[in-house]
């Protein structure tokens, strides 16, 4: 079941504060956040977020298309491993 429209999209308050601050100071510095569960709202557009994936912070530049997704969707938590040739080229990656 989806979330009730009455409540509006969920965004962590501490993240909202940071966004407000960035908007006020017009700073384009990336915003560091652990709040992967926050929904991207239109005010996020144009900002860069460093979204934690459990290990490191993944830079995510928010565009209009991303509105409605959650921040965590853009910072993958698993490394994609493939079978195959253990050649120097593949190892370098």
């Amino acid at each position: 079941m989806g979330r009730s429209i009455k409540k509006g999209p969920f965004v962590d308050f501490h993240l909202l504060d940071k966004i407000q601050k960035a908007k006020d100071t017009k700073s384009k510095a990336p915003i560091k956040t652990w709040s992967r569960r926050s929904m991207i709202t239109p005010d996020f557009v144009g900002l860069t977020f460093n979204v934690h994936n459990g290990k490191m912070f993944h830079p995510v530049f928010v565009t209009e298309n991303m509105v409605g997704h959650r921040l965590g969707e853009f910072s993958l938590t698993r490394t994609f491993k493939k079978h195959g040739a253990h050649t120097a080229k593949a190892e370098a990656k």
Binding site: N65, M66, G72, E73, F74, L76
Partner: peptide, 16 residues
């Protein structure tokens, strides 16, 4: 295409 363009999790899974 939209999901793949923004590189969200679902888009990545479709790509792979």
């Amino acid at each position: 295409k939209r999901m793949q363009g923004i590189k969200c999790y679902r888009g990545v899974r479709h790509l792979r």
